[in-house]
Structures are given as C-alpha cells and as structure tokens.
C-alpha cells in the first residue's frame, strides 16, 4: 500500500471511471499537467492510468487520480507545493528540450487523449 493513504487527503470524486476522473481534473484545476503512467508522486506512488494522465494544481492542492482494482478511480487532493513545483519544472524542461530541437513547444505534451496512441 502506498503512503498516500496515510497522508492527509481530500476526495473530490469516488469510485468513478478513469475518463470521468481525468475530465474532473481538467475542468476543476487552475493548472493542468499531463504525465505518463508510472510518474512517481509522494515518494512511492506510481500513477496508474490511461495516458495522458492529467494532474491538476488548485491553490496548494495537487489533484490526481488514484485507482484501486476493486473500487475504481478516485480524484484525490493533497496539499503539496513541492509536487506542484516539480510538475512546473518538468513542463519547463520539456519546453526547453523542444525549443532546442527546433520544434514548437506544443508538441512537448500530447494535445489530447487520442494523440498518445497515434505515435
């Protein structure tokens, strides 16, 4: 079991589908970042999900999907400016790499859910 369940968290959605959870994060966050499955947060939680996985920043809260095989997908929130900053830094790195390659920065992150499988 991940340490996440021992942390102080808030649940915004419970026992829903992954798609609905992603849409909730996209609609209810101030900032949205997309990561691949297996992205690690809070030291030992490797995110489960259908790529691209949306993570949201809402004030000091990080909104993320948490999947349990017998209970479905949850949208959880944990206050962590550190994790939000790590996402901002990661996004910045993508833009720099993209610029160095001479491509528009929009290519750094898939534009939509379907784009990931087009590659």
């Amino acid at each position: 079991m991940s340490c996440i369940e021992q942390m102080k968290y808030k649940l915004y959605l419970e026992r829903t589908s992954f798609k609905e959870a992603r849409e909730y994060i996209e609609k209810n966050s101030d900032e949205i970042y997309y990561v691949e499955p297996g992205y690690k947060i809070f030291k030992d939680y490797y995110i489960i999900g259908v790529p691209p996985i949306a993570l949201g920043a809402k004030g000091k809260e990080l909104l993320f999907t948490y999947v349990k095989p017998c209970h479905g997908t949850f949208v959880m929130a944990i206050e962590s400016e550190e994790e939000i900053q790590r996402l901002r830094d990661k996004e910045q790195e993508k833009v720099i790499v993209s610029l160095k390659k001479g491509r528009p920065s929009a290519e750094a992150t898939p534009a939509s859910y379907h784009d990931v499988w087009k590659k």
Partner: peptide, 15 residues
C-alpha cells in the same frame, strides 16, 4: 472486467 482493470492494463501497456 471493469474500468479499473482496463486502467491497470493501459498502464502496463505504457510502461
């Protein structure tokens, strides 16, 4: 047999 199982499988496919 559920969305959660499909989500784990999608994760495995990606990693």
């Amino acid at each position: 047999h559920s969305d959660a199982g499909m989500t784990y499988a999608a994760t495995m496919s990606a990693i």
